[in-house]
Design a protein around this nucleic acid. Structure first.
Lengths: 240, 240
DNA sequence: CCTTGTGAAGATATTCACAGCA
DNA sequence: TGCTGTGAATATCTTCACAAGG
């Protein structure tokens, strides 16, 4: 079930990067983007070097965890000194695959789709909107964030022409599965789903879900717990 | 660090619910909303009973996990039969604190704030928009999803009057921390943050983050991995 | 019989604490 | 001396596999 698809280590590519890779834990991967963002902030302030302590504090994690996370990418720090910000930015970016360009297609040009398309951080590093699609005739043809909304029937052409690998589903729940099936059929293997449904996909397709009401419900659970238990002095706990 | 704030078990309230509670794992809590959604779908089709196998399939998890998750709430199933849909909906709702009403304040009425306010699933079960706030004079006073946008200066009054416990931050990154501080100062202890920053909060405040670019970056990592390794026959792996 | 509920095993993740190196 | 990198200890989560019970 896990497998961790690897070539173990050894040979493979010529070997420029010292590389210490080999099955980076999922939990670590989920934190790398946070570290990257924090690193950019340090870089903008022209801070050349950071310690694990500083980086960890800025990222909201414990420093041992940060060091272990980074150690999965290789030994990029200097003992007694810390990490070179520029260099680490590059290494983390490369690990995440952000040194290449990822064309993304957004399906659904409603409120959410519009918000996503206009989201600045989108185009910023590594991601590029290849197209925004919708099925409603009154929306098709309008402009969103500099993109003419295309009919969803153009999905196949768009995906093929731009070599889209990532699809974002911002449609109502009822159509999400159909859109997903179609994306998968055209060769998209990474899907970010904003519709409140559990998507069914074949193996080899990676789905991530963003769900407002789930997040609210998790918050409600803790909020309720707090108000029932009437937490003592030391707050804390609260989880996650 | 963990603590798991409990009254262990025993005494406490008169004890109507059989209750088997006592520190429900965080991972379980995060899945309960998914189960709840799936249960509603079964209920709408007037299906009276489901097995752990069916429920798990619909929720996209393994049935042993689902059973263990539900067992943390109590013994609500019937061996040889399954779970009563109606009853389980109630129990899960109660556990999540959805049998009460949660007034929510949304700060930021830009594209995202608008999308959130208009999001149907919001008002549906348990959550209610108490107000939408913004600081831009040209936005204040406009209508969004049936709510007049109020000036952010009204935050204190709104939170107090509606007893708001949950705040949603949909502002640009630069203002997020200030908004957060202010929410916390007015007594909000649960925050859902859509701004791409790590929020700093005092203990006892629960923050959850929703971040488009982090999700995209995680997808990019796996997509890159796939294209480099050129996955064999059996896809799978892909994680999460 | 069929399906739940759960001990026990296994897998992941986090944290501690310190050896090792610049 | 100061900070990284990492074994070892711990905590959390998942999965197996089966006894218990309607």
């Amino acid at each position: 079930m896990s497998r961790r698809a690897v070539s173990a280590n050894g040979s493979a590519r010529p070997g420029r990067p010292p590389s210490g890779r080999q099955g980076i834990p999922e939990a670590t991967i989920a934190r790398l983007p946070v570290y990257l963002r924090v690193l950019y902030a340090f870089a903008e302030q022209d801070i050349p070097t950071v310690s694990s302590e500083e980086l960890a504090a800025a990222a909201g994690v414990n420093s041992a965890k940060l060091r272990k996370d980074l150690s999965h990418l290789g030994s990029y720090g200097t003992r007694g000194v810390g990490y070179d910000v520029e260099y680490l930015v590059y290494q983390v970016s490369r690990e995440l695959g952000l040194t290449q360009d990822w064309p993304v297609v957004i399906v659904g040009a409603g409120n959410l789709g519009r918000a996503l398309a206009n989201y600045g951080g989108f185009a910023s590093r590594g991601f590029r909107i290849a197209a925004v699609l919708d099925s409603a005739p009154e929306v098709v043809g309008t402009q969103i964030a500099g993109h003419a909304v295309l009919d969803v029937d153009q999905m196949e052409q768009v995906v093929a022409r731009h070599r889209v690998a990532i699809g974002v589903i911002a449609t109502p729940a009822v159509t999400a599965q159909a859109v997903c099936d179609r994306l998968v059929a055209t060769g998209v293997t990474s899907i970010l789903n904003f519709a409140p449904v559990v998507l069914n996909v074949p193996g080899g397709v990676d789905v991530r879900k963003v769900d407002l009401s789930i997040e609210l419900q998790i918050l409600a659970f803790h909020a309720q717990r707090r108000s029932v238990v009437r937490v003592p002095q030391d707050a804390q706990a609260v989880g996650r």
